[in-house]
Design a protein around this nucleic acid. Structure first.
Length: 491
RNA sequence: GGCGGCGUACCCAAGUGGCUAAGGGAGAGGUCUGCAAAACCUCGAUUCAGCGGUUCGAAUCCGCUCGCCGCCUCCA
């Protein structure tokens, strides 16, 4: 297995600290607002990485935290005139609603920063004792800063040179800090702000220290994988490394994994630019599976240009998947009971079986190569074409049905790791009726179909076509087949 | 200004030294069909931003140019 490591800028063989085990930490969200689809991407990427490690038989422990105390949360609380912790609670709830919709698995531990104040204080104390952190008085209380100059490796992850950072510094120059790049481990409480008791009086933790504390507590001093969005590389992850390694004298994380951004009109989606879509907005118009597949159809490190057009294309791809499954199911039910005498096309069946076997191998090859979900999705749609070709060649009998069953299992393998392809074609269409707000229920559609079928029996093509058109205008397509008429939602 | 990345068909997107440059969407033609849909078949980049170079051989490595983006400040 190869993983691209931000630290070295290269793909490296994945060698876990303890054989067969993986400790992985992903930086979660700051809970002060609804999540946007950039958060969704990060969540989906690490969800699939998590599921793939499990699929490969690793015993993985995955931690994803919540930053539940922070300037933005405090600001939001003031604006809405509610307490900071009710802001945090509200957006944690909303986060879970979004993630459940997107079928993101829960991490093994989902810790909150404010549940680890004591651990953070211990680490900060340790850093002060080592002379790497220092205190600054702020009235009755004190703040604590990390001295970047005391950590020689500072800048290694983000490939930044301390002097160059300084010369181009856009950071606030605080005269009391010994270096403008020094960052807060502990912030003295200002009037009206939430606070915790500490050796430095009333205050609250800085942003970066929480991840150090939670990572060490839940996974130990050294872990295998630490990740998050690429915008966390600097300063957040750089600072985490500095504090953690200065404190433990051990390597903090072996592999640094960062997902790329979502862009709108080629620009990074961000709150400040206002060019973002919330997860809720997108899920109001598109099925969650469409969003997952959309994210996975490009490599996790590439930027993804987000647009409705892209989502529609992905929706069409999924439609292709489900309509193929529908054909497969029909084929299986028609052939499963036929005896061996009825078998036709055994060479073809062998050929097809070998394609399916190769597909399974190629799936792992793709995923083993830095989680290349884009290749894997490409392969999946190639397999769909092979399946359709196989069915079109009209093989018959149990062996043919068996081959199709094996192909379905192969698709389920991808579905399991990507956590898509979870429904039956019928369920997919029922859900599409809802998401596309089509004013017909399944039973109403069936009534129309029955009505049309009697018209067809009487060769009343005008009435039959009128019914077809009526449904089509509502977004429903009818398919006449030998076995009868079925319907699906037009995408 | 410093550092990093990207530029592959109409659109999206893999491929990072060597079989015919995956796959999806859109388009054109065909088979099938009462009509349609689906599916399948065929067509579509002699070419990978441009220009040089290395090599028996490059979209893939090196250099330069052009264009775009990100980080350097909170950010998934």
């Amino acid at each position: 297995m190869k993983i691209f490591n931000t630290m070295t800028g290269k793909k490296e063989d994945f060698i876990p600290l303890v054989q067969g085990k993986v400790g992985m930490y992903a930086c979660g969200v700051t809970v002060y607002d609804y999540c946007h689809i950039g958060h969704a991407r990060s969540a989906i990427v690490f969800d699939v990485i998590y599921r793939y490690f499990k699929y490969k038989g690793f015993d993985i422990k995955f931690i994803r935290n919540f930053t539940d105390i922070d300037d933005k949360i405090i600001k939001k609380a003031k604006e809405e005139n509610i307490s900071w912790d009710s802001v945090a609670r509200k957006y944690i709830d909303e986060y879970y609603k979004d993630m459940d919709m997107l079928a993101i698995a829960r991490a093994d531990v989902e810790p909150k920063a404010t549940d680890h104040i004591e651990e953070m204080i211990q680490i900060i104390k340790g850093l002060i004792e080592k002379g790497i952190a220092y205190e600054i008085a702020e009235g009755e209380n004190k703040s604590v800063y990390f001295s970047v100059e005391k950590f020689p490796d500072y800048g290694r992850l983000s490939k930044k040179d301390l002097n160059e950072l300084l010369s181009g510094a856009r950071v606030d120059v605080d005269e009391r800090k010994s270096n403008p790049l020094d960052f807060a481990l502990w912030k003295a409480s200002k009037e009206g702000e939430p606070w915790w008791d500490s050796p430095w009086g009333k205050g609250r933790p800085g942003w970066h220290i929480e991840c150090t504390a939670m990572s060490i507590k839940h996974l130990g001093e050294s872990i295998d994988i630490h990740g998050g969005g690429a915008d966390l590389i600097f300063p957040h992850h750089e600072n985490e490394i500095a504090q953690s390694e200065a404190y433990t004298n051990k390597p903090f994380a072996r592999y640094w994994v960062h997902n790329g951004f979502i862009t709108i009109d080629k620009e990074k989606m961000s709150k400040s630019l206002g060019n973002f879509f919330t997860i809720k907005e997108v899920l109001d118009k598109y099925d969650a599976e469409v969003v997952r597949l959309f994210m996975l159809s490009s490599h996790y490190r590439s930027p993804i240009e987000f647009s409705e057009e892209q989502l529609k294309e992905t929706e069409a791809s999924l439609e292709r998947y489900y309509s193929t499954i529908s054909r497969m199911d029909e084929f299986i039910s028609q052939n499963a009971k036929k005896d061996k005498q009825a078998m036709k096309g055994s060479d073809l069946i062998n050929w097809f079986n070998s394609i399916v076997d190769r597909f399974k191998e190629r799936f792992e090859e793709a995923m083993d190569d830095d989680f290349n979900t884009a290749i894997a999705t490409g392969n999946t749609f190639e397999l769909l074409r092979e399946i359709n070709r196989f069915i079109d060649s009209k093989p018959e009998g149990q062996a043919a049905a068996g081959a199709i069953i094996r192909a379905k299992e192969a698709l389920n393998l991808v579905g399991k790791v990507f956590h898509i392809f979870r429904r039956t074609p019928y369920e997919w269409n029922i859900d599409l009726l809802k998401v596309k707000k089509i004013p017909y229920s399944a039973s109403q559609i069936q009534e129309k179909i029955n009505e049309r079928n009697s018209a067809r029996k009487n060769k009343d093509w005008t009435l039959a076509d009128n019914i077809r058109n009526e449904l089509q205008e509502a977004g429903i397509l009818l398919e006449d087949k030998r076995e009868g008429t079925s319907w699906k939602v037009k995408v």
